[in-house]
Amino acid sequence: MTTTAVSTPRWYRVGVLPEDVPLAHLMTRSGDLRYRRSACGERESRSWKPVDLTTAELTPCPGCVATLSGAPADGEDRAQLALDLGV
């Protein structure tokens, strides 16, 4: 079995500043490869700039953070299903 190291997610500042409350988003490729879409689904942009959250004065988008922790971004409570299969 091989294990692959998972790198730290890359956060990006997107859109045009100044914004009222600028946030850093996790960006993923959208269907059109010229654009990226935020993990929370709220932003799509052709311009994004990588940021280091340890030195930048930006806060991470709560919706994007929720996608990392596995928690639903909409706040909906979803129960986990567990099956006990006697083998």
Results as ranks from 00 to 15, higher is better:
Y35N: 11
R37S: 12
R43Y: 08
A56G: 12
T55D: 04
L83C: 04
D32L: 13
E42S: 15
P9G: 09
S30M: 03
L26K: 07
R36H: 14
C61P: 00
C61Q: 02
L33E: 15
S69C: 08
P72Q: 10
A66D: 02
T4L: 14
W48L: 14
A66E: 03
A39H: 04
T3N: 08
S69D: 07
E44M: 15
G70V: 10
T67P: 01
P62C: 07
T28S: 07
V65Y: 03
A24M: 00
R78L: 13
S30Y: 07
D52T: 12
G41W: 07
A66V: 05
A71L: 07
D77C: 01
G15M: 08
G63I: 02
K49W: 01
P22C: 12
V51P: 05
L33D: 15
A56E: 10
E42A: 15
A56R: 04
P50N: 01
P62V: 09
P22L: 14
V6W: 00
T4S: 08
D84E: 08
A56D: 11
R34M: 10
L23G: 00
R29M: 09
L33V: 14
T3E: 04
T8M: 01
D32V: 15
G41L: 07
E76P: 00
D74V: 06
S7Y: 00
R13Q: 12
E57C: 07
R36T: 10
E42R: 15
V87T: 11
L68F: 06
P62T: 01
C40G: 11
R46P: 06
L81P: 03
T59N: 05
D52V: 11
R78D: 09
A79R: 06
L53W: 10
L83E: 02
P9I: 13
T8E: 12
W48H: 12
H25P: 00
A71R: 12
